[in-house]
Design a protein around this nucleic acid. Sequence first.
DNA 1: ATTTAACATTTGTATATACAACTTTTTAAT
DNA 2: ATTAAAAAGTTGTATATACAAATGTTAAAT
Lengths: 149, 149
Amino acid sequence: MTIEEVIKSSIPLKPHTRTTLNIMYSSRLVEEKISDLLKPYNISMQQYNVLRILRGQKGTPANLSTIQERMINKMSNTTRLVDKLIEKKFAERTICESNRRKVEIVITQNGLNLLSEIDPLMTKCNEDILNLFSLQELNTLNQLLDKLK
Amino acid sequence: MTIEEVIKSSIPLKPHTRTTLNIMYSSRLVEEKISDLLKPYNISMQQYNVLRILRGQKGTPANLSTIQERMINKMSNTTRLVDKLIEKKFAERTICESNRRKVEIVITQNGLNLLSEIDPLMTKCNEDILNLFSLQELNTLNQLLDKLK
DNA sequence: ATTTAACATTTGTATATACAACTTTTTAAT
DNA sequence: ATTAAAAAGTTGTATATACAAATGTTAAAT
């Protein structure tokens, strides 16, 4: 299915426009599947993303700027996002003693357990989304997208 | 630049995961550029998207479900999105006489003028985003993304 | 003819996001 | 030592989005 068919455009799009639209539309498809997967766990994609970053720290606390810099969606309000995770007992926050402007955020065991539960489902979800693609094609797609950055 | 570098992942991602992340991250990059372009005109990407759909109707009024079905982001509240466009005098809404459940939305001359002004900038924006890509590469990328749908 | 169901949109509510202004703490400059 | 500037977060406000319930209208069923 082409992007023109998706948006029911009667006239063909210019190549560059078609591509940017296609990237955005594809992203929506992916996000929808991932959101659906996370819905039963009552966390948003952003919150999941932060939990993954915290786990990636392997015990080292992360401060807000670190989280922000590693997120896929650089969002403007990481404070309140982390608030939600703390409310749900998936993370904890303390003030950094060496620099009291900073906060230190760590994932809790509870948060780690949640991620462990989601891990295999997320892997499968990603595979399902891309089930029509060969490894070769995934590679090509990745290389092309990398050129954007 | 690879997606692993972007998110500062110490371990390599699985091919499928890398690809879905890459699609989402690429979309953010595109959206950021387009939002920046629209900012001076004080309309959001969604609002712009609706205006484009209305113009595409070439005079035929669109009802809400038509708009919703053609949007890139299927958003849940098209009513209030259209409200914003009406507030700004870029669109008008009337009740459909043959079926009073429906509304008929048309773009105003004011809205058409706005789009005409933005058109060349948007074309250039899309070209700039993808300036590193050959037409051949754009084609390949489009074909691959089309497989998602 | 009356009730039921389906349709198209609107409204309410909760949450998310963007952007700017504001604290608090630390570093640098005089 | 005092003031100014920078850094790191937080809070306020406006807008956006998601989801469910409500409204009004039309079509279908009995």
